[in-house]
């Protein structure tokens, strides 16, 4: 397969997998191409499943609290 999995986003992998299956489902695909599509489909499937497995419900907590000090103050006159 031409693209390495990590620069293929999940959306692209899933969209292309849809295309591959649709192409194969058409039924008018020769064995040569069917085998090639099958292999490509398996790789796309692996990309999607790996991406799904990536998420581990980890949480990182940062803070961006307000700066101190205030604007104008003091009596009007």
């Amino acid at each position: 397969m031409t693209d390495t999995p990590d620069d293929v986003t999940f959306e692209e992998a899933l969209a292309r997998l849809d295309e591959v299956v649709a192409r194969m489902d058409g039924g008018d695909v020769g064995l040569e191409e069917a085998v090639r599509l099958f292999e490509q489909g398996q790789q796309l499937l692996a990309v999607c499943r790996d991406r799904l497995a990536l998420a581990q419900q980890r949480i990182t907590e940062l803070t961006a609290q307000a700066e101190t000090g205030s604007d104008a103050d003091g009596a009007p006159f």
């Binding site: 419900q57 940062l62 803070t63 307000a66």
Partner: peptide
């Protein structure tokens, strides 16, 4: 199970 980065702000 998304990984989350939470930034605390007022």
């Amino acid at each position: 199970p998304a990984d989350v980065v939470l930034v605390d702000v007022p």
